[in-house]
Design a protein around this nucleic acid. Structure first.
Lengths: 345, 345
DNA sequence: GTCATCGATGCACACGTGTGCAACGGCGGG
DNA sequence: CCCGCCGTTGCACACGTGTGCATCGATGAC
């Protein structure tokens, strides 16, 4: 209604507080404000203090969009993960988010669907926001994903898959799976079972393969079943088929804790078997539920916080030396013994 | 070495593809490129097609930082949540991320610690990046948080707490908890137990209060115990005290599924009680594990996807009408009957 | 044929910040 | 006292995009 309103029909922005206003308030130049917020910049300590006080009084906050526009890099880090609410992935995703925040980064949670189109859309979003890095928490993105990230200068870190051309980080799946076979055989169990999943990640494949090879090497037989997914329902279904095999397996290695829970529940409720009396079970990941009274699952421990810390370390290295050859790290997964299988002394 | 290299000593940026280059490639002005990517802009369809083709050929991606700098609003939406790997929160966080991506937003996962300082740092980060909105998924931020968000023009959506001054969304906790008490009494059970948590959210308090009031109204007694946290360990500890009460409670309402799992495990493994024979149990949230064979927990269902969809709807409304009075929505939580308690016909 | 109308287009400014470069001032050595 | 050095400061340009405004050309009505 008023003339003031009429003079600015479209722009009604309420004069956001910017570096200009802070500089006027502090009686310095705008450059000084910028330098006050830049670690290591050439500025006198008294000037910096005066600027910081003025900024505090005005409630000034550096605009990260403009900052990122200059440096051609924002502090966003994409976490690409399918079904981030499930099992170990949930813990790993949470730990990554916390570690990234502690580093001053901004974790963007890309909960992709299963399709390749979803993944592409997520990547375009990250590139559009000039994300510093993309972390593939799970899933197997196509080669084009990797190429596009590289072309746009994005750091790429792949978890759970040994990708020779890119930085990667994963558990020592083969060693753990082989250890599981050796423990079973060392306990005198020779009719072994293996529960995997059709929707398998490279880590899952490593565990499946290593277990079978180690069992063969030790002269044990392996009955192998796969659930549709590597979750509880998959474990139930796989156990139904696996425990119908005659002679029945005496011990089962599950490449996943949720699968193991499904196997144990089927064995007890449907097949009437005692665990570990009739059937020994070992899982993988050691999620908190493995320690619950109802299960007491012996499992190989993956520490989400340790893995997240290592991931951040790799990102730091990559940022410091962009041309460094690809880094690959394997974290050992130590056995945690509970009641579902005790190796004995 | 060459003169070209010498002329740009510091700037070695590899000439990112921007709107300028696309415009030259397509033979139009730079404005046309901008308009081609702006829905509803005044541009001929043939021109837009030519621009889009050129952009495709050059691998151009609109710089969202610059775009956000102009509009003073990025497409980031912060999801503030403590311990996002746990229980229903994990599912809700994942569902929110997916729904936000589907809306074209960028979900930022703020995994805060418990301290107020952490929360403040997270908020400064979101303000620095000019996030469009902040969603409090769990926890109870201090009043200052809300004030600061409002001062900086950020939309604030609070889940799990009825905040009269802000948009909020939560389950109909009181109705469900009262229903639990009525179901127990209707089944002839009059010595009731209630398991809550000391680290209680407003939603938890609502459930506790409503259950106690309904039980009192119906003439039933309530033994009340709280775990330190609303998790499995808290359920174990609370059950240890609760089941030592004489006369022993016949039925327990847990304000949380993980608490209920702890209660069931303690009842069965330690106290030697049958569920539901000696002790009926009802939980809240209906996480997938409630359906597992080992538990079969009767629970009140909260649908993460439905809640996320409603949250997005509120954000859309708020964006369309910034001055709309605060919106509050309650979603009903229907009972899902399993073996841990069956109300009968 | 002339004029009004309207869609399409280009120009130029604005958004808020980082930083190279030059200038300035203080200080110590000769 | 003079000169060189160095820390500090301010100026001005750059980053990539959205959009108001003016211009232009085509089209339709008379």
């Amino acid at each position: 209604m008023t003339e003031e309103d009429e003079s600015r029909p479209a722009r009604q922005r309420p004069a956001r507080v910017n570096a200009q206003r802070v500089s006027e308030h502090a009686g310095v130049s705008r450059s000084a404000v910028s330098r006050a917020f830049t670690p290591g910049a050439s500025i006198a300590e008294v000037t910096r203090a005066r600027v910081l006080r003025a900024a505090e009084e005005l409630g000034y906050q550096v605009n990260d969009l403009a900052r990122g526009l200059i440096s051609d890099r924002s502090r966003l880090v994409g976490l690409v993960v399918t079904r981030p609410e499930e099992g170990f992935r949930a813990h790993l995703t949470a730990a990554l988010a916390k570690a990234l925040i502690g580093r001053g980064s901004v974790p963007v949670m890309i909960n992709t669907g299963e399709t390749e189109a979803d993944l592409g859309a997520a990547q375009r979003m990250l590139i559009g926001h000039r994300a510093e890095a993309t972390v593939i928490v799970s899933g197997t993105p196509p080669r084009s994903f990797q190429d596009l990230a590289r072309r746009d200068g994005q750091t790429l870190l792949i978890l759970g898959r040994a990708e020779p051309d890119a930085d990667h980080l994963l558990a020592d799946n083969a060693a753990a799976a082989a250890q599981a076979a050796a423990l079973f055989v060392g306990r005198g169990l020779r009719r072994l079972g293996l529960v995997g999943a059709h929707a398998a990640t490279p880590s899952v494949l490593e565990r499946e393969t290593a277990f079978r090879e180690a069992a063969a090497r030790l002269g044990a037989s392996v009955a192998w079943e796969r659930g549709a997914d590597s979750d509880y329902a998959g474990g139930l279904a796989a156990a139904r088929r696996l425990l119908a095999v005659r002679p029945r397996p005496e011990a089962v290695f599950c490449i996943n804790d949720p699968l193991a829970f499904g196997v144990m529940d089927h064995a007890r409720s449907e097949a009437g078997l005692a665990v570990p009396g009739d059937l020994a079970v070992i899982g993988f990941d050691d999620v908190p539920q493995a320690a619950w009274r109802a299960y007491g699952l012996t499992s190989f421990r993956q520490d989400p916080a340790a893995m997240a810390a290592e991931a951040v370390r790799i990102l730091d290295l990559r940022r410091a030396e962009p041309e460094h050859p690809p880094v690959g790290r394997r974290l050992s997964a130590p056995l945690v013994v509970r009641s579902s299988f005790e190796p004995g002394s």
